[in-house]
Simulated assay, not measured.
Amino acid sequence: MKTAHILFIISWMACVFVLPRVILHYQLAQRSAKDTDLVKLLSIKLFRFGLLMFLLALSSGMWLWLGLGVGGKWLLVKLILVFLLLCYFLVSGWLLICTIRQKNNLSSLALRIFNETSLLFVIPIIYLAVSKNA
């Protein structure tokens, strides 16, 4: 179960890191009047896949938590950071919808900065999971 949990987390993280960059390229393609149908389809599938991987990671994590009795202050802090990362991912989905509807007015620089902010959550999450200290 732990192996499956790690696999689901890695898959979700890939989506968390890639989706904002895909939105940026999608928006740039829209602005240059290029065909965006394929990028639109792939972006939507990427977001849906990310949601599925999050739900599977959450389910397997709950199973490990309840089954193995893992706990402590570090876990609470980690779960808060995971919730914030989920909010970040959902905001990415909202930005995707805005971009599809051509209502995303964020600049390329703002989207690039947004893309990098996920690390503010991921690095402490990894530290807490590895060290189990808070």
Rank of each mutant, 00 (worst) to 15 (best):
S131I: 02
A33H: 12
T99G: 14
K45L: 14
I10M: 13
M62C: 11
C15E: 02
D37Y: 05
V130F: 13
K103I: 03
P20M: 08
L75K: 02
V22K: 09
V130T: 11
P20E: 05
G69L: 06
K132H: 10
V122H: 01
S43K: 02
L46N: 03
V122I: 15
V77N: 00
C15L: 03
K103P: 06
A33S: 11
W12Y: 13
W74S: 01
G69A: 08
L106H: 10
N104M: 09
F121V: 05
F83S: 12
G61R: 03
L68M: 11
K45W: 09
S108R: 10
I100H: 09
L55V: 09
L55A: 14
W63Y: 15
V91M: 12
L28C: 04
V82W: 04
I123R: 10
V39Q: 13
L76I: 12
T3F: 06
L42R: 13
E116D: 02
K34C: 03
L109R: 12
I113C: 07
G72S: 05
G71S: 14
D35H: 07
I123M: 12
L56D: 00
V39F: 12
L19Y: 09
G93D: 05
L46G: 04
M1T: 09
R31M: 08
I123D: 01
F89V: 09
C98L: 15
R101C: 03
L81R: 07
K78F: 06
G67M: 09
K132T: 00
L85M: 15
I10V: 15
L76E: 08
M53V: 07
S32D: 08
L96P: 05
L106R: 12
Y88I: 11
G93S: 08
I123Y: 05
K132N: 04
I9D: 00
L90G: 01
V18L: 14
L38P: 00
V70P: 00
I44D: 01
I100T: 07
D37S: 14
F17E: 07
T99I: 02
W65I: 04
L28W: 01
W94V: 10
L95H: 14
L66F: 13
L90P: 00
M13P: 07
S43T: 06
L68A: 06
V82E: 00
K132R: 15
I100C: 08
M62E: 08
L58Y: 13
K34R: 10
L51S: 05
K34T: 04
L64R: 03
M53E: 01
Y127L: 12
K78I: 01
I6L: 15
S118C: 14
C15S: 15
L86P: 05
W63V: 09
R21M: 11
G61C: 06
Q102M: 09
R48Y: 10
L24Y: 07
L85P: 06
L38Q: 12
L52T: 13
R21I: 14
M1V: 11
S107W: 06
C87V: 15
E116N: 07
L111V: 04
Y127E: 00
C15N: 13
V82D: 00
E116C: 09
W74G: 00
L46M: 15
L109A: 10
G69T: 04
L56C: 11
L79E: 10
T117P: 02
I9W: 10
F17P: 00
